[in-house]
Design a protein around this nucleic acid. Structure first.
Ligand code: FES
Ligand code: FES
Lengths: 142, 142
DNA sequence: ATTACTGATACCAATTTAGTATCAGTTCAT
DNA sequence: ATGAACTGATACTAAATTGGTATCAGTAAT
């Protein structure tokens, strides 16, 4: 059961990469090479991030992309939602069958409780946090 | 982002259905009709559950299936693992790139922490619990 | 024997995933 | 003003996965 697909994975890595760099525009090519992400695939992913405001871009020579928000305000949940849609465990399990009163089905509540918990957990992990972690790792390596 | 696929979904529903019935063998056909699950698909799913000990079977006329464990001891996590494999967020995000010391990468720890949390949450939801919930729902309908 | 079951396994169409390719437009440097 | 270095938009593709179907063989109750 793979939770994150390649798009989300690459997107997070690209965002971290951008966040770790000093200001200025970074080209898709540069990120692609640094992170070993297929160029065209990454371009499509970046465009999607741009459309959603997580990244800003500048066209033309010397252009490129940069974060559109501060790293601490980009949660992985947001990235997941862009590429994989809202976290959803399953449709309701017993539909018409057993629960005619969908509105207050306990089972449904249970499922939604977990959905929220997962979502919340993914929101807590921000790009900023991941960057801090990585920097800690690097510091240890010295 | 759909977390549970149809196999897991149907499997859980079949298990609940079995758990709510008094003892005795129940045919795949009966479950298929009761839960509106495609017969052949359900059969394959049941066979897999049997191989994994969650369900027992008896061949021949008058045969069928029944739970192989008590409902309270079947966690949804177990079912997920059978049909979708262990919960895994993503491969490690920065592989050779940034974290040469995989062993104690903080990022990796973070990811594994969430994996465990999700897994734990799914373990807490047992078939027994779901059945109790459903019974509560039915009682309310009275 | 016949009927009602499971065991095992092969097959299939539709969708999703991961990746590629192309062309048009923008900006910078010379 | 031209070429190189970029992004924007979008179409295309191969491979894997998903959800579902079909078949044949074997077992047990009547
Ligand atoms: S499981 Fe869907 S309403 Fe109860
Ligand atoms: S992200 Fe994989 S070792 Fe750090």
């Amino acid at each position: 059961m793979k939770v994150l697909n390649k798009e989300t994975d690459y997107a997070v890595r690209a965002l971290i990469s951008l966040g770790m760099k000093a200001d200025g525009w970074v080209s898709a090519k540069a990120i692609s090479e640094e992170q070993a992400i297929p160029y065209q695939f990454l371009r499509r992913i970046l465009q999607e991030l741009i459309r959603n405001g997580l990244v800003e871009s500048k066209e033309g020579a010397g252009g490129g992309v940069r974060l559109g928000k501060i790293p601490a305000e980009i949660g992985v949940a947001e990235v997941i939602e862009i590429f994989q849609g809202k976290v959803q465990l399953s449709e309701c399990m017993f539909r018409k069958q057993l629960c005619s009163n969908r509105a207050n089905c306990v089972l449904r509540h249970e499922i939604m409780r977990i959905e929220k918990m997962v979502n919340n957990e993914f929101s807590q992990i921000t790009i900023g946090k991941l960057i801090d972690d990585l920097k800690a790792v690097e510091a240890m390596k010295g």
